[in-house]
Design a protein around this nucleic acid. Structure first.
Lengths: 235, 235
DNA sequence: TAGTGGTCTAGACCACGGT
DNA sequence: CCGTGGTCTAGACCACTAG
């Protein structure tokens, strides 16, 4: 049910619920989710609200709408979806895998006279005893926004969960640039990259909160077997 | 003015007009476009239609909306925007530059028993006598959908313009995967890549028409100075 | 023909920014 | 305070799909 008194918009509430159900496998790949009309009735709301919610799912690449037929689930397995940037956990949920984080560096740095926490983590999945690292993730966060952030253990806790629960900050928007880079020796060892691979994908950018304040600078280097998948509409 | 009898939806008509004005520089970087209320009045339509149009501009990364203030133009210069994939011409428009295409290969190939046109082009810009190639673009198009396509000269004509005007096919949706690759000798020469660069960005995927039929397989290799910029909303 | 998503209308109230 | 964009309602007609 949707809660009209909640400060979260109805269509976002509905979006989250549908998303949850899709990621939990209640609607499987290729299956149709309830029609817009059914969702209207079930959640006692209007079509505009339902359509807003579904359009978020479409943006995520989680569903596809076809006129005259319905809205069906579209999970591309084994691929990394652009919308999961900044949300490694979702990626793991889809694949039903266990996440592993290893802190490579945690320190305080000074940039342009301001103090920042720097956190470098290797992140990956654990499958039957062996750990495969998929990315190296550098986060730069301003100390003044997050006093005491260094007391948390980010091998065990999710950075984003701490930001939300302890600092009441909600990442809202990202701006990232993708570019290729040459692999260096250290990265090759961490990501266990094969010798005949020489190029990696780098994503670099900023993350903004609900008030459009830059809360984090991010750099992520991906293992070569990771692809970024994107769907766009042309006009 | 919007034409209600046109088969193109009103919000798409409005979107195209606003987009045109932004790309033509009638609204410059940072300037506010008319408010939603003003657009309603000017085009004698409702707010829903106006908001649909603007949301397309937001998806393109061309404008940003701020509550309480307005909608302003957001052109990130010198960067390649993801929404321009498959539309090299727009990229040139924004930068006011002259496009150059050089056909490297044009042939007919057979894949899984079907015949396809293969077209490989180096594409770039011409500035004061020197030509800089920015990408190498491989297109694979089914012969049965486009009989006679090989009679056109794609150093002079735009592939997409021919598809639209001669075959009445409108590219509508893309699915692409981004990944890094190591540079090879030939590519290095064409794109004039500096010796200490070893990695390039590759985009590979398919383009679908208005009926969701795959009309083209594409592979694009970008020069190292090109970045893909992406903005996403988190939830 | 019934049900789907696509588009459009004509309102309403709200949170936020700037005056 | 007014104007902005954000959200929501309650309808309408259409094009398309499938039985």
């Amino acid at each position: 049910m949707l809660d009209k008194n909640n400060f979260v918009p109805l269509y976002v509430q509905l979006y989250r619920q549908l998303r949850e159900e899709i990621l939990n496998g209640e609607y499987k790949q290729g299956e149709f989710i309830p029609s817009e009309t059914e969702l209207m009735k079930t959640f006692a709301t209007t079509r505009g609200t339902v359509r807003n919610a579904i359009s978020l799912l479409v943006n995520d690449g989680l569903v596809q709408q076809v006129r005259g037929k319905g809205t069906f689930v579209l999970l591309r397995p084994l691929k990394y979806n652009i919308t999961n940037f900044g949300g490694f956990t979702d990626y793991l949920n889809i694949r039903n895998e266990v996440g592993v984080s290893k802190v490579l560096d945690q320190s305080i740095v000074s940039l342009e006279g301001k103090s920042f926490y720097k956190l470098i983590r290797a992140r990956g999945v654990k499958k039957g005893g062996t750990t495969t690292y998929l990315m190296i993730d550098t986060s730069i966060l301003p100390v003044d926004l997050f006093p005491g952030l260094d007391q948390y253990d980010f091998e065990k806790e999710s950075l984003y969960q701490v930001l939300r629960e302890k600092y009441l900050i909600y990442p809202k928007r990202t701006e990232i640039a993708l570019s290729p880079i040459s692999i260096d020796k250290q990265t090759r060892e961490i990501l266990q990259v094969h010798e005949n691979e020489h190029a990696l994908l780098k994503a670099e950018g900023s993350i903004f909160d609900q008030n459009n304040i830059e809360i984090e600078k991010v750099k992520i280097i991906y293992a070569p077997n990771i692809e970024f998948n994107i769907m766009t509409e042309l006009n």
